[in-house]
């Protein structure tokens, strides 16, 4: 770790702050994941880690590596963009999956289906197994 000795304080302090901010937010997100009571609440918790949690750590890495290499190293941006694009896809998919399963099982407190062909109308008479849900082509 030779770079640590020559690092000036005006680089070290923002890098350290960004690192600690990112790690703390990610940790808080997972604390929420364990602590919250319902699945739809828990769906919000990981976004802390994927928005500013990841951004803080990636910014810190970008600043530090750019300083030690002596040129702008921005490849952390690729991870940032990738996370920004993929997180909505996975969380939307999970939310829809949970909603679909809850509607089939008739869990109370779930808004009813906006009329659609692939979701059974009365929640009671459908089979509990999602694999047997109608609408499979």
């Amino acid at each position: 770790m030779s770079w640590m000795e020559t690092l000036p304080a005006w680089v070290a302090i923002p890098v350290a702050l960004f690192l600690m901010l990112g790690a703390t937010l990610t940790l808080l997100g997972t604390v929420g994941l364990v602590q919250l009571k319902s699945f739809y609440d828990r769906l919000h918790a990981p976004t802390l880690g994927t928005s500013w949690g990841a951004a803080g750590i990636l910014l810190a890495s970008m600043l530090l590596v750019s300083w030690t290499e002596g040129r702008a190293v921005l490849h952390e941006l690729v991870i940032g963009i990738f996370l920004m694009i993929t997180t909505p896809v996975t969380l939307m998919f999970l939310g829809r999956a949970a909603l679909h399963r809850d509607r089939i099982e008739g869990t109370p407190g779930i808004p009813g289906a906006v009329e659609r062909s692939d979701i059974p109308a009365p929640p009671g008479d459908a089979l509990a197994d999602p694999a047997d849900a109608p609408g499979e082509s």
């Binding site: 739809y40 769906l43 919000h44 976004t47 802390l48 994927t50 928005s51 920004m84 997180t87 909505p88 969380l91 939307m92 939310g95 829809r96 909603l99 906006v114």
Partner: peptide, 11 residues
Amino acid sequence: VTATPGTAWVD
């Protein structure tokens, strides 16, 4: 909507 913590796009 999904990137903002506190709101989740469900359906």
